[in-house]
Amino acid sequence: MLYPLFLTLHLFAALIFIGTVFFEVLFLENIRKRLPAKVMLLVEEGVAHRARQVMPWVLLVLFGAGVGMVGLRYLPVLAAPLASSFGTLLMLKILAAISVLGHFATAMLLFKTGRMKARYVHFIHTSVFCHMVLIVLLAKGMFYLTW
């Protein structure tokens, strides 16, 4: 009974996280060209402030539920991840997710220490966006790709 709960929590947290990243990369970048710099700065500050409030909790649920799912169902598969396509793709998904967590921790540290620069924001958002696309493809591929 716990697995469906973890799966649901994981999916909702993923929706929030991925939706936020997609919004920031696909929408905010385009909006920047249409708004005065001062207005855009206020918009970005507002979005960033809210994201820093919400995202730690979203990531806690996302990773907590993911760890719960692994513990309940996927530990045997991860004991020999290269033995199956499912295990290999799951391992790659977990590695990509850990990389996203590293990006997030780096961003939070840079913000907290006042060293975050616009180019870092752009790089981190773009990298996390690419990671998210990869994670979604791996998550679907786990159930449909075999070799």
Rank of each mutant, 00 (worst) to 15 (best):
L60V: 03
A139H: 05
S85I: 07
E29D: 15
K117N: 02
H131V: 13
Y144S: 10
H122I: 04
A51I: 14
A65T: 06
V133S: 00
V77Q: 13
R32Q: 14
F27L: 10
K93F: 07
L110I: 09
F6R: 03
L82Q: 10
E45P: 02
T8Q: 09
L15K: 01
L62W: 02
V121E: 10
L145K: 05
V77D: 13
L95S: 12
R34M: 12
G68I: 13
A107F: 13
T113I: 10
L26M: 07
G68H: 14
T126C: 09
L7Y: 11
L2F: 05
V43S: 05
V133A: 00
H103S: 15
R119I: 02
R115T: 10
Q53V: 14
A51Y: 14
R50L: 15
L62S: 01
F143V: 12
G102Q: 04
T126H: 13
P81Q: 04
V67E: 04
G66L: 03
L72G: 07
K33L: 09
L5R: 07
F86W: 11
V133P: 00
I135G: 05
G102T: 04
G71Q: 00
L82N: 09
I18F: 08
L90Y: 04
V77P: 01
A118F: 05
T20Q: 04
L109T: 15
A139C: 08
A37H: 12
F63N: 12
F27N: 01
L35M: 09
A48F: 08
K140G: 05
V58G: 03
P76W: 10
L7Q: 14
M108A: 06
A83C: 03
L26W: 14
E24T: 08
L75Y: 06
M40V: 03
F6T: 07
V136A: 03
R73D: 02
G66S: 03
A97C: 15
E44V: 07
H103G: 11
M116R: 11
I31E: 13
L41V: 08
Y144I: 14
C130H: 11
R52K: 13
V21Q: 10
G68R: 06
F143T: 11
I98G: 05
H49S: 11
A97M: 15
L110Y: 08
M40C: 04
A83H: 14
H103C: 15
L59N: 12
A37W: 07
E44S: 09
L42K: 08
G114R: 00
R119H: 10
G46W: 10
F129P: 05
E44M: 08
G87S: 03
R32V: 06
A65S: 15
L15N: 00
P4V: 04
V128R: 08
M108R: 15
R52P: 12
F111S: 10
K33W: 11
M91G: 04
V100M: 08
L7E: 06
I94Q: 07
T146V: 09
L78Y: 00
V43K: 00
V70Y: 01
P4M: 05
I124D: 01
V61F: 11
V61A: 11
L35T: 02
A51M: 13
H103W: 10
E29L: 05
I94L: 15
L72R: 02
L95Q: 12
G141M: 08
L72H: 04
M116S: 11
R34T: 15
L5E: 10
M132D: 14
V25K: 08
Q53C: 12
L9S: 03
L11S: 02
K38S: 12
F143N: 11
A83I: 05
L9M: 09
V47F: 04
K140A: 06
A51F: 15
